[in-house]
Each structure stands twice: as structure tokens, then as C-alpha cells.
Amino acid sequence: MAWPDDFGTRFTLFVDTEEEFDWTAPFDSASRSTSAMAALPDGHKRLCEGGGAPVYLIDHPVATAPAAIDALREVVANGGAVGTQLHPWVNPPIQEAICATNSFPGNLPEQLEAAKLDTLTDEIARAFGTAPRIYRAGRYGIGPATARLLADRGYRIDSSMRSRYDYGGHGGPDFRAVGNHAFWLDRRAGLAELPLTTVFTGRVRAGGERLYRFLGEIPRGRGLFARTGMMARVAMTPEDMPLDDALEAIRVALGEGVRVLNFSFHSPSLTPGFTPYVRDAADLKAFYGWWDAVFALLARRNVQAASQSDLIVALDRIRA
């Protein structure tokens, strides 16, 4: 998919806006606390001041919690946008066994995936007065029916594919062959895929996915290559991605001609103690420092934020 020339090179920030849960425990349909959402308005302000235009992809616990909705309404009033993220284990109707395989919504029977999507889409539309247009499957769990279900419901962008990652060992999809460029899932319906950006950095990064797979078969091979600057896989997120690696990944992505760099993080990371990535105040300070440095590099490279509206207007121009 070729973005319009005057669209320039842009970046997006899609936030997985979700409940808090124990990342080391089994999936639990009763884990629906959303207390970390209280930090969202201040976090949104800081991200926007840095140059971001966040889209908050919200799941069912967030979409149905009054305090969380109030926080999001404040964010929307200050330039934010709301989309959809489907965590099936907390999203009615819950008819499936709660297990790792079924945590990927695309693994569910099509009728059940559709019913969950309808429930969540309707809740978001009721809370915010407009239907969501951007979707992410929880755990990046897109399935064979997902694109059709999204197109039928008027969604315009899916961001369920995490470039260069493989979740097959847990029963999920394999995205190792997916690159960083946007592409059509259904051009007639105007539904595009915008993968989460992930690039290979280092002196032998030209080896790409084939070399990275080979290194995975060698004990500690990937870690050794990353530590010695030979090759690393770097996703566009502050969560478990060192700042220097992220800055180099941005330079690489721009050098490879990626027109839309897609960044992400989990909303509970805005409050210490709710994710493995932000455990205390020092981690939170580093989290915002990461964004400050990333936004500064993007500004120097004249890479501006793309809002939800910017993206959809550009898609309409491409499809016309």
C-alpha cells in the first residue's frame, strides 16, 4: 500500500488499554480491575506534549468501568481517540474454556469471535457516541475470520500483527514473515493492516529473519549477538526495549523506507507495579525518558504523529 506523497513519514501510538492482571498467573475472567486508568489523563498529556497522538485500544473491563470511561472521555476531549482491543477471557459472552489457546480470539469459533466483537464494539459506541474504527486482537491473536468480521462492522485499521514475532509456541499466530509496511486486508471495504513495527539492527542485520531463526536454535545465540552489536530484534515500545536500541531501530526503519512507524505500550505501565516493565517510580521515570528521547529523534527526522483521523483520510485517498 503506497501512502500519498504528501502524507510524509509518520508515526502512530496505539496503546493497549486494559485491565490489570498478574502477568505470571493463568488467565482469569474475574481479573477486571482498572484502577491504573486513573493515571491515563496525565499520561496522555505528557505523550501529547512530546508530539504523540495516542489511540487507546480499550477492552471490555475498561469499556464498562465508569471511572475508566470518565478518564477516557477526558482524554478524548483533549485530542485522544478510542479503538478496540479484544481480550476474550474477560469479554462476554464467555462460552469457551479459559486457557492459553483461547486467549487468542482468532482461535475461537467464528460465531463466538463475532459475538465478543459485537459486545465490545457496542459498549464502546455506547460509551463514546461513535463506533470504533481501529482494532487489535488481544495477544495479537488475529485469526482466519477476523478481517471479514472487522470489515463487516466498519473497522478501517487492524493492528493485530506484530512484525517478526511468532506466537505459535503458545497456540497463536506466526508473524515472522510480516514486514513493517502497511497493506490491505480488504481494499474494497477499506480495511488496512498496520503492523506493529519491529526491525533488525546490528552489523549483520541484513541476515534478517532467516539468520534470527537460526540464532534461535543456538543456546544463547540471540543474546550473544544482541550484546555484541551483531544483531538484535527491536520492537517500537518502551517495554523491555532499551532506549539506545530503540533509537537505532528508528534510524533503521526510516532507512528502509517505512512510512508509518507503529509504536505501542500497555496502559497499566503508566502506574508502577502493574506490569513487569514499570515496577516502581524509577521505572516510570525511565519510561517517560524513553518517550522524550524517541519523540526528540522523530522530530529531528521530521516524522510527525498521525492521528486516527489522519490515517483514515489517507486510506480513503489511497482507495479512491
Rank of each mutant, 00 (worst) to 15 (best):
P4A: 02
P4E: 04
F14E: 14
T17P: 03
E20S: 14
F21V: 04
T24D: 12
F27C: 11
F27V: 09
S29M: 04
A30N: 13
R32E: 05
T34R: 14
A38I: 10
A39F: 00
P41K: 03
K45Q: 15
G51W: 13
V55K: 12
L57D: 02
L57E: 05
D59E: 13
V62K: 07
D70Q: 11
L72T: 04
R73D: 13
G80A: 06
V82M: 02
V82W: 03
V82A: 03
W89F: 15
V90S: 09
P92R: 05
I98R: 02
A100K: 14
T101V: 15
S103P: 09
G106V: 04
L108N: 05
P109W: 10
Q111D: 08
E113A: 10
A114R: 12
A115W: 09
A115P: 02
D118E: 15
D122H: 12
A127L: 14
A131D: 13
P132F: 00
Y140N: 10
A151I: 01
S159E: 10
S160N: 13
S160E: 02
G168V: 09
G171F: 09
G172D: 00
G172V: 03
F175R: 02
H181Q: 14
L185P: 09
L185E: 12
F200K: 06
R203K: 15
A206Y: 13
G207N: 12
G207Y: 05
G208P: 06
R213C: 05
E217M: 11
P219L: 05
R220K: 11
R220Y: 14
T228R: 15
M230I: 13
A232H: 15
A232W: 01
A232C: 04
V234A: 04
E239A: 01
P242W: 12
A246V: 11
A249V: 03
V252A: 03
V252W: 00
G255T: 09
N262E: 05
H266V: 00
S267Q: 00
T271N: 02
T275W: 00
Y277E: 02
A281E: 14
Y288I: 06
Y288T: 04
D292R: 15
D292H: 10
A293H: 09
L297T: 05
N302V: 08
Q308P: 03
V313I: 10
